[in-house]
C-alpha cells in the first residue's frame, strides 16, 4: 500500500457522534415488539408516537413510503386515544397480513405439461441453487419425478453444487461443462425430460445483477429457447430474493419481471434477524405470488409462505 493509512479516529472532529450512533443502534437491535411496547405504554397515540411507529416499520425494511402509509392507516381511527401496545401490534399485523394474504400462493406444478418447466433466476448469492435442491425434495415427496438442469454455467463449481443436490434427492441432473451455453443446456434438458417422462424440470441459472443488460439478455434468450420447445413453457419463472436485501429488491423484481415475466417469488434466509419487510412493498406494487420461504440450509428448510405468520413475525408477535 502506497501511503500510511489515515486512522479515522484522528480525523473525526466529533467523537461523541459515534457514541450517539452506538447508543441508537443498541435501541434498534432490540426487537420491534419491545419498541412498540416502549412507545405505547401509558401513552396517547399522538403525532410523535405515529412517527416512532413509522420508524419501527422502516427498520424492518418496509421502506419509508409503505411504513408511512401503514402508520397512517393505524392511527386514523385511534388518534389521540389511549392505546394498548398489544392492540396496536395486532392491528398492524392484521394490516400487513391483509396486504400479503392475496400473494401467499404455494407453487403448483400441475399445468398438465410434461415436463412442467420451472426457471429459477435471481441476483448472485440469493440462494437459487439451494432453493432448487429443496424444491426437488418437496416435489419428490409429493410423488413427482424431478429433473434438475445445471444452468449456472458461469460460476465456479455451481454445477458440482447442483449435482450434490441431485445425489441428495435422487433427481437426475442435466449438466454440461462450465462455460457452456445455458440456453443450449435448457434445450437439452427439456428434450431429455420429455424422453424420460419427467413431471417437473427445475432449471437453475447463473446469478445476475438486474442492471447488467447483457446478462439479462442472456436470460431472455434462455426463455426464448424454452418457448421454442414448448409454447406454454416456462410454466413458472421464480425470482429468488434474499431477505436481507433492502429497498433494492423493488428494482430487482421490476427488472426481472419486465425482462422474463417472473411469475412468483421465493424469499430466502429468513432464519436470520432480517425480517424481509420489503415483501410488503413488493406485494403492494407487483402483487406477485410468494411461493415459499427459506429458513435454513437443509432440504426441509423450505416452507410455504403464510401471510399471517409472516406479518406477526414482522411485528414480533408469537402465535
Amino acid at each position: 500500500m502506497p501511503s500510511p493509512p489515515v486512522h479515522w479516529r484522528s480525523v473525526l472532529p466529533d467523537m461523541s457522534w459515534f457514541q450517539r450512533i452506538k447508543e441508537g443502534l443498541r435501541k434498534s437491535s432490540s426487537r420491534l415488539a419491545s419498541g412498540i411496547t416502549d412507545i405505547f405504554t401509558k401513552r396517547k397515540l399522538d403525532a410523535a408516537a405515529v412517527e416512532e411507529l413509522e420508524d419501527l416499520l422502516v427498520m424492518a425494511d418496509l421502506g419509508p413510503a409503505t411504513a408511512a402509509k401503514l402508520a397512517a392507516a393505524i392511527s386514523k381511527e385511534r388518534f389521540d386515544k389511549e392505546v394498548d401496545p398489544d392492540e396496536i401490534r395486532g392491528a398492524l399485523a392484521d394490516e400487513v397480513a391483509a396486504i400479503l394474504e392475496p400473494v401467499a400462493k404455494p407453487l403448483t406444478t400441475d399445468s398438465g405439461a410434461k415436463p412442467h418447466v420451472v426457471l429459477v433466476a435471481g441476483v448472485n448469492g440469493s440462494g437459487k441453487t439451494t432453493t432448487i435442491g429443496k424444491f426437488a425434495k418437496h416435489l419428490q415427496a409429493e410423488g413427482k419425478t424431478v429433473m434438475l438442469a445445471a444452468g449456472d454455467t458461469f460460476r465456479a463449481a455451481a454445477i458440482e453444487q447442483l449435482k450434490v443436490w441431485g445425489d441428495r434427492t435422487g433427481a437426475t441432473v442435466v449438466a454440461k461443462e462450465q462455460g457452456a451455453d445455458a440456453a443450449g443446456l435448457a434445450f437439452d434438458a427439456i428434450e431429455r425430460a420429455r424422453r424420460e417422462g419427467v413431471d417437473v424440470l427445475l432449471i437453475d441459472t447463473a446469478g445476475r445483477l438486474h442492471n447488467k443488460s447483457g446478462l439479462m439478455e442472456e436470460l431472455k434468450k434462455i426463455v426464448r429457447v424454452i418457448r421454442k420447445m414448448d409454447e406454454t413453457a416456462p410454466h413458472d419463472v421464480l425470482l429468488v430474493l434474499d431477505a436481507t436485501t433492502g429497498q433494492n429488491a423493488i428494482a430487482q423484481v421490476e427488472t426481472f419481471k419486465e425482462m422474463v415475466n417472473v411469475t412468483g417469488l421465493v424469499v430466502t434466509k429468513l432464519d436470520g434477524t432480517a425480517k424481509g419487510g420489503v415483501l410488503v412493498a413488493l406485494a403492494e406494487r407487483f402483487a406477485l405470488p410468494v411461493h415459499a420461504i427459506g429458513v435454513g440450509e437443509q432440504a426441509d428448510d423450505l416452507r410455504p409462505f403464510a401471510a399471517r405468520d409472516f406479518a406477526r413475525g414482522l411485528m414480533g408477535l408469537e402465535d
Binding site: S28, S29, D242, T244
Partner: peptide, 14 residues
C-alpha cells in the same frame, strides 16, 4: 457484505 443489504446490515456487522 452485499451492497444491497437493508436495515439488517447494522445487526449483521455489529
Amino acid at each position: 457484505a452485499d451492497a444491497m443489504t437493508g436495515q439488517d446490515a447494522v445487526n449483521v456487522a455489529d
